[in-house]
Design a protein around this nucleic acid. Structure first.
Length: 181
DNA sequence: TAGTGTGTTTCTTATATAGGTCGTATCC
DNA sequence: GGATACGACCTATATAAGAAACACACTA
């Protein structure tokens, strides 16, 4: 069972912004401190995804726990900017998913040292003194999987949920083949 | 040697995972 | 004061973005 915990998307509005002016127009929803970071943060509520808007018109949405919520956050952003007269609908160029962070639970304790050998040392990184998880990069897939001794895992690096599921299924097959616990 | 140009790295944000370290708080 | 508990933060992973700070190469 794969669960999305963070979806990241980016988009482009065909317009340059004076972020100081935009921050004033948006009020408390916006947080802009150019000395700290060149992007302006926009949040719709305390637990909503975070939007980072740049001077060039490009923006990033992070913190959505589903693809639907990512799209919803993008719609809210565009409505907010349109309603405040900051952009026109014709300024919207594109928006696409860039990265998904998902969790998975294989419901079995794992011997990560043996798993690293079984999966192949050239495809894995396991240094427990540095980080308790095993990093697995399947050359046939875009995703990177962090595998922990508890049987839980983090799958990241892909923009396609089907590919994430495929990566999870592939690992389940490998665990079954290796029969490690 | 100084100036310019190019390229690389770091910063920031979100998020799960887990082990280790550190600081603070509470209790005996 | 010592022991324990707890929270915060670090480590690693991916990704986008712009700006600043670097490092390095090249030319005058």
């Amino acid at each position: 069972m794969v669960e999305v915990v963070n979806a990241v998307g980016s988009g482009f509005l065909n317009r340059e912004f004076d972020l100081s002016v935009v921050a004033e127009d948006l009020g408390s929803a916006a947080d802009f401190d150019p000395e700290k970071y060149p992007g302006m943060y926009i949040r719709f509520s305390e637990d909503s995804p975070l939007v980072t808007l740049y001077r060039t018109g490009k923006y990033i949405v992070t913190g959505a726990d589903s693809l639907d919520k990512l799209e919803e956050a993008n719609d809210k952003l565009l409505n907010l900017l349109c309603d405040n007269g900051i952009i026109d609908r014709s300024d919207v160029e594109w928006f696409e998913v860039q990265n998904l962070v998902c969790t998975a639970n294989f419901d079995q304790d794992l011997n990560l040292s043996a798993l690293a050998i079984g999966l192949g040392l050239e495809q894995t990184e396991y240094e427990p003194e540095q980080f308790p998880g095993l990093v697995y990069r399947n050359p046939d897939l875009e995703s990177v999987i962090l595998i922990f001794s508890t049987g839980k895992a983090v799958i990241t690096g892909s923009s396609d949920l089907d590919e994430v599921v495929a990566a999870s299924d592939n690992l389940i097959q490998e665990l079954s083949r290796l029969q490690l616990n």
